[in-house]
Every structure is written in structure tokens, then in C-alpha cells.
Simulated assay, not measured.
Amino acid sequence: MYKQLQKIALGTLDASKPSESIVGQVTGVNPLEITVDQKLVLDADLLLVTERVKRYVVSLTHSHIYKDVTPTETATKTTQTALPDVLVIREGLKMGDAVVLQQMKGGQQFVVVDKLVKP
């Protein structure tokens, strides 16, 4: 009886296809494509991308307005523009990147959770 219940429980679990983590490799960027085990190719329609793997840049460009007070006059001036470049916080996904995927329940969609890096 115990074996039969165990078999039924495992069968129910397999039928529901619970979420599982897998590793894939980025094989296309625009549109996004990820290959798992050289046999399963996931296109953009099957992928949900988290903010963590998106390119993120911050513009630090700024200038300041100040008053220059002299004994004869007061003038409003503006400093030169500082830090004209952007600061890249995250590069985003590139060809060849290894990524962690979370297969959604039912197996129809995959969440790109994060990029794997070498220690």
C-alpha cells in the first residue's frame, strides 16, 4: 500500500511539472535566444527576463548654477558640464553568457533569473 501511495504521489508531482532550475547559454541577443543542452532552443516568446539581467546605465551628467558676487556686481553663472559619459552598472546579456533559468510550473515559460560568472 505504501509503495502504491508513493507511486501515485510521484506521478502527480511529475504530471504537474513543478518549477525547476536549469542552466542555459545565450545564443542570440536581439531577439533573445537561449539554448539548453544543445537540443532545446528557447526563443523570446518563451522567456521572461528579470531586471537583474537587463542592461542598466546611469547618466551622471550635471552642471550647477551659482551666484558670483563681487564688490561691483552679482552674476548668475553655470559651471561646465561634468561627467558627460554614462556609468554602466550592468552590461546585460551577451552572446555566450551562461544563465540560470527557472522553468515555470507547466514548463511553457522560463524566467531568466541571473547570469553565471566564473569565481
Score class of each variant (00 low, 15 high):
99 V>K: 08
34 I>S: 09
16 S>H: 10
99 V>I: 06
18 P>H: 06
83 L>C: 04
94 K>A: 13
31 P>A: 08
44 A>L: 05
70 T>N: 08
18 P>C: 05
78 T>R: 15
68 D>Q: 12
28 G>C: 04
42 L>N: 07
7 K>R: 15
92 G>Q: 05
27 T>K: 09
85 D>G: 09
90 R>T: 13
43 D>S: 14
89 I>G: 03
24 G>I: 02
42 L>W: 13
19 S>R: 11
95 M>K: 12
91 E>S: 14
14 D>M: 10
36 V>S: 02
98 A>L: 15
50 T>K: 03
49 V>H: 02
13 L>K: 08
48 L>W: 03
38 Q>F: 03
79 T>E: 03
22 I>V: 15
53 V>W: 03
57 V>C: 10
60 L>M: 12
10 L>I: 10
13 L>N: 02
71 P>R: 04
10 L>V: 10
5 L>Y: 12
21 S>T: 12
29 V>G: 04
65 I>T: 12
14 D>P: 00
5 L>I: 09
41 V>Y: 05
39 K>W: 01
84 P>W: 01
81 T>G: 01
37 D>Q: 08
80 Q>E: 11
68 D>M: 07
90 R>W: 06
26 V>C: 06
24 G>M: 02
86 V>Y: 00
15 A>G: 11
26 V>W: 05
93 L>Y: 11
93 L>K: 11
14 D>L: 14
